[in-house]
Design a protein around this nucleic acid. Structure first.
Length: 415
RNA sequence: CGGGGUGUCGUAUACCGGUAGUACGCUUGCUUUGGGAGCAAGAUGACGGAGUUCAAUUCUCCGCACCCCGACCA
């Protein structure tokens, strides 16, 4: 992509109505546009990042047998009334048509996925099932905050699994947990699994996946030596206590953001909809349901919060909108432009995603924009690099500078 | 939802009961070209409504929007 053609431009100033680092940087760099409190549009750069995140999640969910579908987000009111959530869930957006028919906007999809599963799963032979989707969610939060991390409309992956036994659900939960950790790892995030209360919605235990960041809304206690981690809301220990799991060190307290969760929903939804399956002996049973959420837009905000530095955003390799930011230093020497164009062609045809700053702008502005946008690798083409016969490569995360020939570059980027 | 605050060119800000200024951005021209360039010329602005006043962007009230703290966040 030629930067001169890129739809968005960077801004020098952060908007005055944003306090969170993620929103300030994402708006300054041209990734998102605020529509209203808690609602953002994702511009070309932002959409690229979001798609990368979605694709990572999609790949890992597919690997564990998840089947992607796309459920409606405009919901009939009936299933919500049937489960009691119409009056019981206060974040549910309710809307009315001009004929005064009532609808809900999807804030979660149990009310939709359960009847769908019911229509196709009649036998123990049909179970287990894991269905997921990636899309928009709507929640009537009393107060939106933290930029893209707590909005009224947001992106989320939500998966629902249906099992014949509790053991089978427990088995699958462990599989999903591993997949979740893979996803976080691919985003360079270090997540911890905690036990949390299931809220009024679920009597059973739930698990939350927490990523340490001051931008988070939760306080957690964790151990450096093992994987013990608990939300302070349910923790039976305090900061400074010995770790109850390994006992090797004292518990630490930190702010964290919930970057995913799992609920054991038991048989609540199948019971609400009369969804039973035939067991081997011909008897009828309600399946056990698990629900697995992961906010895609929140994950994006978390990544910005965790990795950004004083100069701007720093994207991990796998979620960056482009892999390479090719900076052509404007020069009277036409060979510089020719060389940059040639490198762009070579890299692009090798399958590398490149943002090529071909704008007629000064070096300082291009470097500042490049730092702000946060693409992992910057390659500079200028009279200097032309004379040296090698391109200047700068790692965004470390600032490390290397000089490489075309073949070395292709080799590194395509290996 | 309770409490508090803010609404001024595209963005960030200043001032003011009487001609609304600056910076960046934008347009045009010239110069410049390795860390957000310089000069010159130009376009663009007071959230909506009511009230007070000779006069309101400024004061008052209502509405709306946005922000912060809290509560809320199956």
């Amino acid at each position: 992509m030629r930067q001169s053609q890129l739809f968005t431009k960077t801004r020098r100033e952060a908007p005055s109505d944003e306090v969170s680092k993620n929103a300030q940087l994402l708006i300054r760099a041209g990734y998102v546009h605020k529509e209203m409190a808690g609602v953002y549009s994702y511009l070309p750069l932002g959409r690229r990042v979001l798609t990368k995140i979605e694709n990572i999640i999609r790949a890992e969910m597919d690997k564990i047998g998840g089947q992607e579908l796309r459920m409606a987000t405009l919901h009939p009111s009936e299933p919500w009334k049937q489960t009691g959530a119409w009056d019981g869930v206060d974040v549910l957006f309710k809307i009315q048509s001009r004929t005064e028919k009532e609808y809900a906007l999807g804030q979660s999809e149990e009310e939709i996925v359960t009847p769908i599963a019911q229509q196709y799963a009649h036998s123990y032979k049909d179970l287990p099932i894991a269905l997921y989707q990636i899309g928009q969610k709507y929640r009537d939060e009393l107060r939106a905050k933290s930029g893209i991390m707590r909005g009224r409309e947001f992106g989320m992956k939500d998966m629902y699994s249906f099992h014949t036994t509790q053991d089978d659900f427990d088995r699958y939960y462990e599989i999903v947990k591993e997949a979740y950790f893979k996803i976080y790892k691919r985003c360079n995030l270090d997540a911890k699994a905690t036990e949390a209360s299931g809220g009024s919605f679920s009597e059973k235990i739930s698990y939350e996946f927490m990523v340490l960041t001051d931008a988070g809304e939760d306080d957690i206690l964790y151990c450096d030596k093992c994987d013990y981690c608990a939300n302070v809301e349910v923790a039976k220990n305090a900061e400074g206590d010995a770790c109850p799991k390994c006992g090797q060190t004292k518990l630490q307290k930190a702010k964290a953001v919930e970057a995913g969760n799992v609920f054991d929903l038991g048989q609540k939804y199948p019971k609400a909809f009369g969804f039973t399956y035939k067991a081997e002996d011909g008897s009828d049973h309600y399946p056990i349901v698990g629900c697995y959420g992961m906010g895609t837009t929140r994950l994006m905000g978390t990544i910005v919060e965790v990795f950004a530095d004083a100069k701007g955003i720093v994207w991990p390799e796998e979620v960056a909108p482009f892999r390479v930011h090719l900076i052509e230093i404007t020069s009277d020497n036409a060979d510089v432009h020719t060389e940059a164009a040639e490198l762009y062609r070579e890299l692009t045809s090798a399958g590398v995603e490149v943002l090529w700053d071909d704008r007629d702008a000064r070096a300082g502005e291009k470097f500042a924009d490049s730092d702000l946008i946060g693409i992992p690798l910057r390659i500079v083409v200028s009279e200097k690099t032309l004379a040296a016969g090698k391109f200047e490569c700068v790692e965004r995360v470390s600032g490390k500078v290397e000089h490489k020939s075309l073949s070395e570059l292709i080799g590194r980027l395509t290996s």
